[in-house]
Design a protein around this nucleic acid. Sequence first.
DNA 1: TCTGGGGTCCTAGGACCC
DNA 2: TCTGGGGTCCTAGGACCC
Length: 422
Amino acid sequence: MMYALVDCNNFFVSCERVFQPWLEGRAVVVLSNNDGCVVARSNEAKALGIKMGTPFFRIRKLTENGGVEVRSSNYRLYGDMSERVMRILRGTGLEVEVYSIDEAFMLLGGMNPEQYMPLCRGTVARIRQWTGIPVSIGVAPTRTLAKMASHFAKRYPAYRGVCAIDDGTKRSKALSLTEISEVWGVGRRGAPKLESAGIRTAADLAARPEEWVHRNMGIGGVRTWRELHGIPSIDRDIEERRQSICTSRSFAGLIEDKEELAARVSDFAAACARKLRKENSVAAKVAVFLDTNRFREDLPQYSPALETELDPPASSTQEIVKAALGIFGRIYRPGFGYKRAGVTVSGTGSADIVQMPLFGEEDMKMRERTEALSGLMDRINAGEENLLRLGIQHPGHYADGIRREHCSRLYSTDWNELMEIK
DNA sequence: TCTGGGGTCCTAGGACCC
DNA sequence: TCTGGGGTCCTAGGACCC
């Protein structure tokens, strides 16, 4: 079995460039919500030394003198472009595992190089031509090595977008050229520990005995080690249903007021309920968390979280919001400035097999009405998001009040926006 | 002044059981 | 003096991913 990892290059930046071609060849960064920190960089921005996760205020000077173009994140645009790319991948007829908004694995089965190389090159060209997004593809016998191969494809233009690690020679060479911190599953934090043990590259790790890896890195480390040796060890029997769904946001400022914060929590809960219904799920647990601003060491800190059960599991806006507000009432303390809050629903299951043996006929009827109302809300809100909402909710969308001073338009999903392009 | 959001998995430790 | 051992389940927290 061979795996192909398809990775969109500097995805958010590339999405912006498709509709603003003058950004081509320039240093561009895309910011997180609230224009907080850098989450995507063009190659030119990387060359300037701008690091992933840098707070925006640290590089504001660079953007004000015109050296670096900046955009707020426009997730609707990126989500739509991602769907277009994934649709092209599925069009190959191969099994596709979507891994994130900008990455997917294609299962190449028992194809040989004469088959998968033209297929991958054709896929790179087609995605570029049909969506404008540049992608790189890495091919290898395990997902970890495919990921590594995609890095080479991205870094060296000679590969023309596709790099395969498909024999022992290429594998040893790739391993010795890959720093340990770049290995999928090791990460930046795990790297220093390994380096102090004399492991600098992926090849150094692969050379250790499996027993040593187990002792020092646990079961996850062993899986990585085996993958580096070309033995597939990451099971991705992907669950269609997510085990938990979380909606949270940082606020532009600090919120102290109980009513205002309750309205935000209600919005997050309503968003979770909507996401649940969208995948025909119900949740058995609802959790709420609050956070003060951990960077403000001069202010008192408080980060409570609490979970409650829903019996039977539910997905209606009314029930999820009610549960979340109940928790909120128990964890909220006055006198703190809250910077972030969120709602997580978990213990998810199919909405079609909810058991309600303990409920009487009246309860059943009430549930049916509640669910019918949520369904109606979904259909109305499909036209204009959050047009219809519960009284407690924040007037407007839960993303309102979030700073987005450099946002591009909804080029690909909104006709009116498209017509306004100058 | 200004520091993201949404997931998964693993582990350690406690409660509980026989 | 000496206080089993092992299993399960749950939860909190950490690490990792993009």
